[in-house]
């Protein structure tokens, strides 16, 4: 169940035009799963490196690794 849900979340993210997504939006990929449970699944995706946190400082969003412009710029700086 968890693996299948993870795959659906990643697939959903890949299909979106936007690169950053709110937690609530990711949950749309797995509407039958309660938010608390979805949180655990999404955290596993982060720990596995399949999703990344993006934070403005006040809000946290999720994205696929390597999509962040700042990350790319920063790579150029180092």
């Amino acid at each position: 169940m968890s693996e299948e849900a993870k795959a659906r979340i990643i697939e959903w993210v890949k299909q979106q035009k936007k690169t950053k997504h709110y937690f609530n939006d990711l949950c749309k990929a797995v509407p039958e799963i309660k938010m608390m449970q979805a949180k655990k699944i999404i955290n596993e995706l982060v720990n596995e490196g399949r999703l990344k946190y993006w934070s403005s400082g006040s809000t946290t969003m999720y994205m696929l690794p390597g999509q962040d412009d700042v990350a790319k710029e920063e790579k150029g700086m180092n």
């Binding site: 982060v46 720990n47 990344k52 946190y53 993006w54 934070s55 403005s56 400082g57 946290t60 994205m63 962040d68 700042v70 990350a71 920063e74």
Partner: peptide, 13 residues
């Protein structure tokens, strides 16, 4: 510019 993917492993804040 504020915001980014920086953080420590396992933490989202």
């Amino acid at each position: 510019k504020h915001g980014g993917i920086v953080g420590v492993f396992g933490y989202g804040g």
